[in-house]
Amino acid sequence: MDAVTTASARIILICSGKGGVGKTTLTANLGVALARLGKTVAVLDADFGLRNLDLLLGLENRIIYTAQEVLAETCRLDQALVKHKQQPNLALLPAGNPRMLEWLTPEDMQTIARLLAERSDYVLIDAPAGIEQGFKNAAAAAREAIVITTPEVSAVRDADRVIGLLSTMDVKPVQLVLNRVRPKMMANQEMLAVDDVTDILALPLLGLVQEDERVIISTNRGEPLTLEDNPSPAGQAYLNIARRLCGEDIPLIDPSKQRHGLRARLLNKLRKTTGLF
């Protein structure tokens, strides 16, 4: 496969295998966060079948052209790109018609990514769920990847399949984001622990995002959490992920190790004093 070789832009695939684990939410929040850090960012909706990135960014009413017209050369790239209102450093290239899936090739995606890379520091590609052609097209255009999963058996298993596929392509590094972490359940060992997931998938951990109802509110509004100055826990986590991507050394704190609940505290104390379990 022809690697995309333009400038020094980082072209990052955001993928998961299993659907609905938070790819699009991460892409939108990361796009805004990177723009706030002064980077020029293009986000590409590669989920042609079920596009949503426009909605999460609140840009759905401003779409005129899509990736389809850009590829057909019936419009210029800058005509199709939709600039974000508050963060003009961030632009969205919307997904084309679902029928594009019938003819779109990995080379087409590489062409689009190359065009975006010419004018950006970061190109984020929101991949479709699954491991079929749509995913492979999106992956062909990427240089590195973020795999996002939740601490659940089915999501981790599907993430493993995607990591296996990425290891056969020229995509490096591949980093992990663990989403929808519930610290209390983890502390009570009623959920896969952070270490369980990172050990099993054997990927470096880029970020931990807690379960946070503010994510739903922000989706309703079409305003990513990272637009806020004092973001909620999930918003802060997305900001930290952006900073780590830029090379800043932000420590990762496992929220389940900061024990709050009475039972968790008791269990912890017993564990320490008895050394039994």
């Binding site: 058996v153 983890m186 009570n188 099993i200 379990f277």
Partner: peptide, 23 residues
């Protein structure tokens, strides 16, 4: 506490390790 029951998180890890070995 009495060690009668495995936490479900531990079961999840063990089941995953087995299924991934096969996958």
């Amino acid at each position: 506490l009495l060690g009668r029951e495995k936490p479900s998180g531990t079961m999840a890890r063990q089941r995953l390790q087995l299924v991934l070995a096969h996958d």
